[in-house]
Nucleic acid binder design. Structure first.
Lengths: 129, 129
DNA sequence: ATAAACCTTAAAGTTAACATTAAGTCAAGA
DNA sequence: TCTTGACTTAATGTTAACTTTAAGGTTTAT
């Protein structure tokens, strides 16, 4: 069973031209075509696309995803390298989350500061009125 | 006491040309100049820059930060609006973090999958040798 | 006093990740 | 049959957030 580019588009929230773009950039090297040159996506292609999206959603660049894909194409001898790459990426993401929390604290602090100011403003306009 | 653009650059990890860029985009409307037109940053300017960086670090766009700055320039009557804006931004950031966690889980899952594959590969090359 | 190190503006260049447009092929329904 | 809609490629456009370059003025150390 195959899926058209439109069907895949609907399942993944990636528009057709984005799917073509990813393919052109080497992120989806195995998508087959009908006799008329129309793309048809297999279950395996969707699985693969899932991995690509997973990496992209966590902020990996397209270039780096391409590097990963190229490693896959080289077969089992790159399995360790791929594991290492994913583990490093995971550490990156965890670090991103920690940074986010740190920055979020500052936002929270700023909010309390502005809220205080607003409270004073409302009070003063009440007594002034 | 004033700081030169270089000094501010060193304190904030923003390069001089970025500080000029931010000013040009309206993010730093109050920086004064010496008689020769050289920028000099006051404590207040640094405080202000701190807020700008805080918003930028949590992913607010320069355009949106500019909107916030413009509200500030309109005085106390926009205080509530500014509080609301920051609160909404905070919710955005929290949502970002939640999404990150969700995506991180998938990465973790993929890692276990690849690690398993690698384990099998090592085993099979051991028995094969 | 002259060279190095700083500052200024304006304008053009860069990068990633798409998005849009143009020009065309192909299949299904009224 | 004809038109509508989905597909194709290739090329060009867009956006954000810088980054670099060019061309020049000023300050400071030797």
């Amino acid at each position: 069973m195959y899926y058209s580019i439109k069907q895949v588009s609907e399942q993944t929230d990636l528009k057709p031209h984005v799917l073509r773009y990813y393919e052109k950039e080497g992120l989806l090297p195995f998508v087959s075509r009908s006799e008329n040159g129309v793309r048809r996506y297999s279950k395996d292609d969707l699985e693969w696309l899932g991995l690509v999206c997973c990496l992209k959603n966590t902020g990996m660049s397209i270039k780096k995803i391409k590097d990963f894909v190229d490693l896959c194409a080289q077969g089992d001898k790159t399995l360790k390298q791929r594991c290492d790459m994913l583990l490093e990426h995971k550490r990156d993401v965890e670090e991103q989350i920690r940074e986010m929390y740190k920055h979020l604290e500052k936002v929270t602090y700023k909010i309390s500061y502005f809220t205080e100011q607003y409270k004073n403003f409302v009070e003063s306009s009440e007594t002034g009125a």
